[in-house]
Design a protein around this nucleic acid. Structure first.
Lengths: 235, 235
DNA sequence: ATTGATAAGTGGTCTGACCAATTTATCTGA
DNA sequence: TCAGATAAATTGGTCAGACCACTTATCAAT
């Protein structure tokens, strides 16, 4: 399909083979791939080349290698997305501002979709989380905050958005973990964030997209402000 | 940092080494990595293991291998994102609906950001494109349509959003390329799409976010409808 | 100085070996 | 007969060394 006329690299044979097997339904999630030695024979290439492909797919999250057992088709892309974003960040392809903009946009979308899809049980769970956020001491704040946002994302019923939001969250943790903690600790920002959170949950309860929009704007207004201060301190 | 106490796999040594070199500023985009044989010596592992890592980074877009010349730090993540999305799609982790939702959300965000950032020159270029879209026969429609959306994305000044939109576009092409062509060919849908496009450009000219929002809603209303029909035909 | 042949360097691939973890088959004792 | 221990086979993880293909550097001849 995408062979360039020129000969394709050996390891690409493996990747394309796996893709083909998936598309013709010969290989499904959870199933075991042919052994590496077997693959090398099937495709007429060396095991080294097979391994380069397997490693790549493994690192991408398509498969999962288990020594002694085999290579299994899995499809866990979370790590890959995080890795990818991290690399982009490290290579200065993207910065905080861009990550934050994307996050804001997707959180908004997720909240809107959640309004359409969330169940009463999920709302109850969210209520519990924000009530904990109010009473709990600062130790678990970060975890609870993440949980809240994640649960909203889940209610969007859009796996892709969930994936990306999760990855963005992890990357932010990785590079500015302290900031998150600080926002949730300082009395003033904590208070306003709590109001924003309450608004978001309330918007889910009464299914009000206007309130949702306002609340999320308030929420990220706080974050963006802190981020700006933070960047100022750094540079 | 993220070593699990357990011994890390050999190839991870390479990846972590590269990452470290990047972060301490020892390695920058465009520069050549140590030769594979050299890396294997530095890290005390075999060249095979080094290669597994190099291949992985290559496929991820972090580096670019050139036979005879060396491995170079590049940072072109477009292909990786496309590959990743394709795999998610093939493994049924995501579907058209989710891709489309994300795209709509990001196109909206991009348009909003573009209103704040676009230059007169860029607006002129966009005007030219939609005028071509009106006069041109169907041959180049798809290319022009893509160009228009891409140019708007560029004006958002958010590389991350640009990356993702580009990837989404490619994946959609890959799996439903015909649909795009059909929408741009049929007289009725073409007409309404043209109106939507005009609205989007107009919103950029007069910097009107309300009009932007309405236009993009109109735009994706058309797409979503066609997508629904298309899925109906398929299933 | 330019050109062209040669050598050195470097990624691409292959072979074959051994280790380590897991799975499967086999055997043994109750 | 069956459960548990043991041995064998399977399979991924790593290594060493070889050769090919392509690029770059070197150097000699003009």
């Amino acid at each position: 399909m995408e062979k360039d006329g020129i000969q394709e690299k050996s390891y690409m044979k493996v990747i394309n083979y796996i893709k083909d097997q998936i598309q013709i339904g010969e290989l499904s999630i959870g199933e075991k791939l042919p052994a590496e030695r077997e693959l090398s024979e099937i495709l007429g290439i060396s095991r080294s080349s097979v391994r380069e492909a397997i490693r790549t797919l493994d690192h991408m999250g398509v498969i999962s290698s288990q020594q002694g057992a085999g290579n299994f088709l899995t499809g866990n892309f979370e790590n890959n997305l995080v890795e990818c974003l991290s690399m982009m960040f490290m290579l200065n392809k993207i910065d905080y501002r861009q990550i934050s903009q994307l996050r804001r946009s997707l959180e908004t979308e997720a909240l809107m979709l959640a309004i359409d899809n969330i169940t009463e049980e999920e709302i109850a769970a969210l209520k519990k989380i924000i009530s904990q956020l109010e009473t709990e001491t600062e130790i678990n704040n970060v975890a609870l905050d993440k949980k809240m946002h994640y649960n909203i994302a889940l209610a969007s019923r859009n796996t892709l958005i969930i994936y990306i939001l999760q990855a963005l969250s992890e990357v932010l943790d990785k590079f500015i973990g302290d900031l998150r903690k600080e926002i949730l600790s300082r009395e003033d920002s904590r208070k306003s964030l709590q109001e924003a959170h309450n608004g978001m949950i309330e918007s889910l309860i009464i299914r009000d997209k206007k309130l949702a929009y306002e609340s999320i704007n308030k929420h990220f207004g706080i974050i963006d402000q802190k981020l700006k201060d933070y960047n100022g301190k750094m540079t």
